[in-house]
């Protein structure tokens, strides 16, 4: 990668981590979930709780980005915000809930500044950021057909503030600071996304790693060419829901995997995946 070279002479003072990222990182190599363990990853350590399915999901998402060197992740307050600053690609932390508004401006500006390159903008936020506090900016970005991907890391509550219920908490569930139990059903945001204008909508789980990787990749590629994309990933929280960390993946399986594409998106994905170089997607616009 031309953009990821160290200035000659400075190699000898660069920390080992950066030398490894340049030599063996995923930039410009078309790698994916199936290649995990064979390259230097964009995140290697994180401060999230033991058994956090969100940490695993982010690892899989990062490994699935079609062009990490040309990707900007936009996030907001939540458990993932503790991890994201340590990731070795551009990421922006927004005020709670306005991530889709920031991503809108960013995507439009990048398209003007780099007309010949796909710059992928990926909103990655928790259920509180997307469905509660940030619902209006999220929905309006879909109504406006903004071409970026929204990924919700759905741990069904506000976990790092002590355990409050969110719109994504299931009906009847009792969490630390919602002792009477949730009074209304989980928000069906993936259904809302379809009617709000998303060209690609999926619900995924880190328990099905390759499928999750495929969905994230498809979402980003559809967002490039067709329209907004939404991926909802179920990330059970052992801290808030009080189950042993070792059970996270077992619980993560307890969700429905769904995928929806508008006809243009389906045609576009088929063209890419059945093409001669199915694994390599150019970032030239």
């Amino acid at each position: 990668m031309e953009a990821l070279k160290i200035s000659p002479g400075f190699e000898k003072v660069m920390p080992q981590e950066y030398l490894e990222l340049v030599e063996d990182g995923p930039y410009g190599r078309g790698l994916g979930v199936k290649d995990l363990g064979t390259f230097k990853e964009l995140i290697e350590v994180h401060p999230l709780c033991a058994g956090c399915a969100l940490g695993l999901s982010i690892r899989l998402i990062l490994a699935s980005l079609p062009n990490p060197e040309n990707t900007v992740i936009v996030g907001t307050t939540g458990c993932n915000a503790i991890l994201m600053p340590q990731v070795a690609i551009h990421n922006i932390h927004c005020l709670f809930g306005n991530q889709s508004a920031v991503a809108t401006g960013l995507k439009r500006a990048l398209r003007l500044r780099y007309p010949n390159t796909h710059k992928d903008v990926v909103v990655m936020a928790g259920d509180g950021g997307v469905v509660d506090i940030g619902l209006a900016p999220t929905m309006h970005s879909w109504f406006r057909r903004e071409q970026f991907t929204t990924i919700m890391l759905d741990n069904e509550g506000y976990s790092n503030t002590g355990g409050q219920e969110s719109g994504m908490t299931r009906q009847g569930v009792v969490v630390n600071m919602a002792p009477l139990g949730k009074k209304f059903p989980k928000v069906p945001l993936h259904e809302v996304a379809k009617v709000a204008g998303c060209a690609y909508v999926a619900t995924a789980t880190p328990a099905r790693a390759r499928r999750l990787g495929q969905m994230v990749r498809r979402a980003i590629l559809v967002a490039r060419e067709i329209g907004p994309a939404y991926v909802q990933i179920f990330c059970p929280c052992s801290t808030n829901y009080k189950f042993p960390p070792a059970e996270s993946l077992k619980r993560a399986k307890e969700t429905e995997i769904t995928e929806y594409m508008v006809p243009e998106a389906k045609e576009w994905i088929e063209r890419i995946e059945k093409g001669p170089k199915a694994e390599e997607v150019s970032n030239e616009a």
Binding site: A3, I6, S7, P8, G9, F10, M14
Partner: peptide
């Protein structure tokens, strides 16, 4: 303490400045 703008060879000017600094 060199920062990203000279440590990374993102332009000819950055490389020239890096050389001058060394």
């Amino acid at each position: 303490f060199p920062g990203p703008l000279v440590l990374w060879a993102w332009s000819d000017k950055a490389v020239a400045k890096a050389k001058a600094l060394q």
